[in-house]
Design a protein around this nucleic acid. Structure first.
Lengths: 219, 219
DNA sequence: CGAAACCCTTGACGACTGTCAAGACTTTCC
DNA sequence: GGAAAGTCTTGACAGTCGTCAAGGGTTTCG
């Protein structure tokens, strides 16, 4: 199991300067552990994930976690922030590539269905952590920051949708995020429980809801 | 609220035959333990709640739980169902007492704020359990049943609101529940995190959203 | 009264957890 | 080469968990 890491770093930039990368290598290990942790967390949830299980899903032993992270909470928070960077730009292509309101709506709904299908474990982990922050104060800072980032992400979609439709928005960013998040969470639950129509349903629901976020057409 | 019938029958016939109530007393103890468990669960969350802690919040010792429940999961599921009975009728008075659409909307928003303020621990417990059901299959049956019941509860409000407004509904029960649940969950999180404006915000957001659930006025 | 059923406490079990110290192994650098 | 720094494993610690058996206490009823 062990020793594989040395082969990786050895085969990579062995020619020029294999050394002289203390902080970089340190961060690389932290990210590597974070990815193993995120896999385990998405599989088992926050409560049932132990440091030994995280280490089992990596190529290291359980003691190494405490070498790179002060304690379990620091690892979790690091994971949450690491995860954030991956999902914030999820809909940026949708916003920039669309030229009509209907096209943006279709692309947005399709992207929702796609991430719901392909990244369900990560999404349920996010909802798990956000709910745990209702009980555990130490999670709140990271959760609040990510929640704000997600709200901004959604608002970029909604405001661009309004711009393309030529109609002003009729909701606050906060409300728009909340209602779309409610639909998404319901679809995620339905999808995980095994309802086959959950994916189609979220698409049609979003198609029905988004026009309501704009002021009525002047007509 | 749930097992009130058995309690009543037990106290009523106490004079004539104090005995002959094995199932009734058994159920009363189960409900008593369920209430202690719900208090603890609302305080600590599902993950950090142990049977010993539940027993500490009651007047019994930790071993008694296993006398009335086969295992921890049976207690939790029993608690969830017990909790359901208390919240399903929450908005029934709002529906039956309102005579105008505006009056219903005001009363509904006020009730949302009230339960958000007074019963926050129970609400975060519900969201905790619903999220845990995304990971733990054994919780799904009870959670799915309660979720459907809540959706019906919300739909009674929305459809009555449409009736009073003289306009047809423009959303499915599923979508109406999802968007309102999203707003509620956001407000709960904000309230628990200490945002003072969370309660006022949910009221105004609901006032803005509910009219959008109806077909546009004929004008 | 005395047997029997019921209720509850106590204490212990094996398993699991986060944490951390001790040491082996590897890499870096003079 | 050899000291020094960095990296990782191993093993153990104190604690908590769900579970359950053994045995008092209490109540019920013939």
């Amino acid at each position: 199991m062990a020793g594989t890491t040395s082969t990786v770093s050895g085969t990579a930039a062995a020619s020029s300067r294999t050394r002289r990368a203390p902080a970089d290598k340190h961060d690389a290990r932290r990210n590597q552990l974070a990815e193993s942790a995120l896999t385990t967390l998405g599989e088992l949830g926050y409560a049932r994930t132990s440091l030994r299980e995280i280490a089992n899903n990596s190529e290291f032993s359980h003691g190494v976690v405490h070498y790179y992270f002060h304690d379990k909470l620091e690892l979790i928070v690091y994971c949450v922030r690491y995860y954030k960077a991956q999902c914030v730009t999820r809909y940026d292509a949708v916003v920039s590539d669309s030229t009509t309101a209907e096209g943006l709506l279709d692309a947005f709904a399709a992207k929702l269905v796609e991430t719901l299908r392909d990244e369900a474990p990560m999404h349920r982990l996010w909802y798990d952590l956000r709910t745990q922050s209702m009980f555990e104060e130490s999670l709140r800072e990271a959760v609040t920051m990510i929640d704000a980032t997600l709200e901004e992400m959604i608002w970029r979609v909604v405001s661009r949708y309004a711009e393309l439709a030529g109609r002003p928005t009729a909701m606050t960013p906060s409300a728009a995020y909340a209602v779309l998040d409610g639909l998404f969470q319901q679809a995620l639950l339905g999808h995980l429980v095994g309802q086959p129509q959950a994916l189609d349903q979220i698409a049609s629901q979003v198609h029905g809801l988004m026009p309501l976020m704009l002021a009525p057409a002047p007509s």
